[in-house]
């Protein structure tokens, strides 16, 4: 029963039109949630969370740095999964998802690197050091840039989809390297403060704002990626009857 339902959902995912109709009511909700969570988390984290005993106020960069780094990796994993689906099932939506997540992924990776640098300057005493964590994150950034450049360079849409799907999928190998770099090697970067099995290495008045910020980042990402996917679906299906219909309906309303 469940497998039947899943199978039907899987087949429906092959239809951009179905996806478009499904996600129409989500966009506004995600946008509002992102706005509220980000505002709430920023004010809470920057103004009300207590300062750190050791780093003072500079530890607050964490409230941008950690969600940005989490999102940078999550978006890449999403692209890798989409790449795998695109390679095996040749699903149109998979390529749409990759092209929609790329620019945001590139930006948040840049943000993670930049905020890390700003954090490193006062605490480590250096803007940049070549340790396992920083280098693997830089590689992640170059992967994003590489796929972006590749997509701009290839004109044939089938080839473009296949090439970017392949790099996106193979590039996910870098994600566990980023994650475990601080455990496998001696690094300047500290190990993770959070894990699924242990309680956080900070009190709740410090990590709750971080949780709100992380949720805000994820809602924002979902919002942006959905908007971009929907725009791209409309563009690709420009001549389909349902698109015409959707446009006329909107004009009337």
């Amino acid at each position: 029963m469940v497998s039947e339902a899943l199978k039907r959902l899987w087949h429906k995912l092959g239809s951009p039109r179905w996806f478009f109709a499904l996600t129409t009511p989500w966009v506004t909700g995600l946008g509002c949630a992102a706005l509220i969570l980000l505002l709430w988390g920023t004010v809470w984290g920057l103004a009300f969370a207590p300062a750190d005993y050791q780093q003072g106020n500079s530890f607050r960069i964490m409230y941008v740095h950690v969600p940005a780094a989490m999102l940078a990796q999550s978006l890449y994993i999403g692209m890798g999964v989409a790449g795998f689906v695109g390679l095996v099932w040749r699903m149109k939506l998979a390529d749409v998802a990759i092209s929609a997540s790329l620019p945001l992924g590139m930006l948040v990776t840049a943000l993670a690197l930049f905020s890390g640098s700003v954090w490193g300057a006062p605490t480590w005493g250096s803007w940049w050091e070549w340790d396992g964590r920083t280098v693997s994150t830089l590689v992640l950034f170059f992967l994003y840039v590489g796929i972006f450049a590749l997509r701009e360079a290839i004109l044939d849409s089938t080839l473009r989809a296949r090439a970017s799907a392949l790099i996106a999928m193979v590039g996910t190998i870098n994600i566990p390297i980023i994650k475990y770099s601080v455990e496998w090697w001696n690094t300047l970067h500290q190990p993770a403060s959070f894990s699924l099995t242990e309680k956080p290495a900070m009190p709740s008045e410090m990590w709750l704002p971080l949780l709100v910020m992380a949720l805000g980042f994820y809602c924002f990402a979902a919002f942006v990626v959905l908007l971009r996917m929907r725009a791209e679906i409309l563009q690709r299906e420009m001549h389909a009857r349902w698109v015409m219909q959707w446009i006329t309906e909107r004009r009337v309303a």
Partner: peptide
């Protein structure tokens, strides 16, 4: 060059 490494623990000064 001397660089400081900090750990993954954060804490308000009073609690410390």
């Amino acid at each position: 060059e001397v660089l400081a490494k900090h750990d993954e623990n954060y804490m308000p000064p009073e609690l410390m």
